[in-house]
């Protein structure tokens, strides 16, 4: 299985939690905080649970609260993926 990408993450965010009209997700957002992207903890919970279902993985409970940016969340997902393989 390939690594989980920012494109896939953005798609999942849009689907699970919608998108703030005043903020673009199209540029380089890897290190922008989720707060600045308009997502609260509930939006992330909904997004992560979809990622978990689609990839068949389970992230450790702390992973969501510790991931403040897309880059950090991608790391958490891909580290978990690597461990499952």
């Amino acid at each position: 299985m390939g690594a989980f990408t920012i494109t896939e993450l953005v798609d999942t965010l849009r689907e699970s939690a919608g998108e703030d009209e005043d903020i673009t997700l199209d540029g380089d957002i890897l290190t922008v905080t989720f707060e600045d992207l308009g997502y609260d903890s509930l939006a992330l919970l909904n997004t992560v649970s979809r990622i978990e279902r689609e990839l068949g993985v389970r992230l450790p409970d702390g992973a969501i609260t510790e991931a403040n940016t897309p880059a950090e969340l991608l790391d958490a997902v891909n580290n978990t993926l690597a461990e499952t393989v």
């Binding site: 689907e15 998108e19 009209e21 939006a43």
Partner: peptide
Amino acid sequence: LPNRLMPQ
């Protein structure tokens, strides 16, 4: 309505 509100 804000798009962020739609899924919720």
